[in-house]
């Protein structure tokens, strides 16, 4: 259930990055060649940034891409270290819960008031806020799932690793070989 959702969100984030490149380049060409501009391009870039940065956050969390300082806890035993990884996820849940709550309130507020950005098109403010909730919400769900899964693993006698699932490394190794 979570994996397909994260894949879709990651794909949408990737589309947002591509759109960022295309939109800004179009604006440069419009200015230099046609003496015109893409209306409200700055506002659109800002809204796209929320999609590009936050929609992939769930996938990043699933890949355990959040960096931590390891050298002290590497001295501990594997079981204690595993519990620390769970605690890390719980701290993330606390931090993200505040963001999720406030983001939802902010979204409802700009939606109800019909707030918009001053500009050529007077674009509404709600899409960026909605993207924020979706991205943070997906990350929260994945963290909760990790915390539960890791706890189960430890309770059944296993150990957990927070080593990042690095796709680049896999690729780099393939090319070297």
């Amino acid at each position: 259930m979570l994996v397909p959702l994260e894949k879709i969100l990651l794909g949408l984030g990737a589309i947002a990055v591509i759109l960022l490149g295309v939109l800004i380049t179009t604006n440069v060409v419009a200015r230099a060649v046609f003496s015109s501009s893409v209306p409200d391009s700055v506002t659109m870039v800002r809204e796209l940034m929320v999609a590009a940065i936050l929609l992939p956050l769930g996938a990043a969390t699933a890949n355990r891409a959040h960096i931590s300082v390891a050298f002290i806890s590497d001295q501990f035993g594997p079981r204690l270290r595993s519990w620390l990884i769970v605690i890390g996820s719980v701290m993330g849940l606390i931090a993200l819960a505040a963001l999720l709550y406030a983001g939802t309130r902010e979204f409802l507020s700009v939606w109800e008031k019909g707030s918009f950005f001053y500009g050529d098109l007077n674009l509404p403010k709600w899409p960026g806020r909605l993207l924020f909730i979706i991205g943070i919400g997906a990350c929260w769900l994945r963290l909760a799932e990790l915390a539960i899964r890791d706890t189960r693993t430890i309770l059944s006698g296993g150990i957990v690793s927070d080593e990042q699932n690095h796709t680049i490394d896999a690729l780099a190794e393939k090319e070297v070989l």
Binding site: L20, L48, M49, L54, A95, L99, R129
Partner: peptide, 22 residues
């Protein structure tokens, strides 16, 4: 919650920082 939201949202909702993902 208002403070943590606005500070994180504003950081991401930035035109200039779009150069980083790009």
């Amino acid at each position: 919650t208002s403070m943590v939201f606005s500070n994180s949202f504003d950081l991401i909702h930035s035109y200039d920082l779009s150069m980083i993902p790009l």
